[in-house]
Amino acid sequence: MRLLTHNMLSSNIKGVTNGFPLRIEAVKVEEKTVEMNTDFLKNMFVKIDWKVLVEASRTLGYAELPEEGDSSFLESDEFLSRFHHALLELHLEEGALICPETGRRFPVTKGIPNMLLHEDEV
């Protein structure tokens, strides 16, 4: 799972009012190089929760994102390549996602978060 997806996911447990962001427990992280598309990054920038991306990328061992995100940064190639790397090249392979409200663990195996709810959570 890439941080792009992590930034969109929230806990769906019944009764949880703010299931975002899911806390990351990283056991194994992989990097895969993909081609950069500036237009995609610019479009995504407005949808991304920047603080959450900064925090998540740190958890995966990448600490090169500026603390604050500002759309004026999108003019900088250096910024774009860091943003690209954090968003699309880091993969959480093994670990877990934790619901911020209930502490429920959603295990991640082979890069796939298991988001299935138990019957009493629906």
Binding site: N12, G111, M115
Partner: peptide, 23 residues
């Protein structure tokens, strides 16, 4: 996973609703 698809995958039941941020 074996076929190395490019999308991210989630094990989830659509009937339980999607846990994705609005919009």
């Amino acid at each position: 996973v074996e076929r190395e698809v490019e999308g991210d995958l989630l094990l989830a039941d659509m009937g339980q609703g999607l846990g994705i941020r609005p919009g």
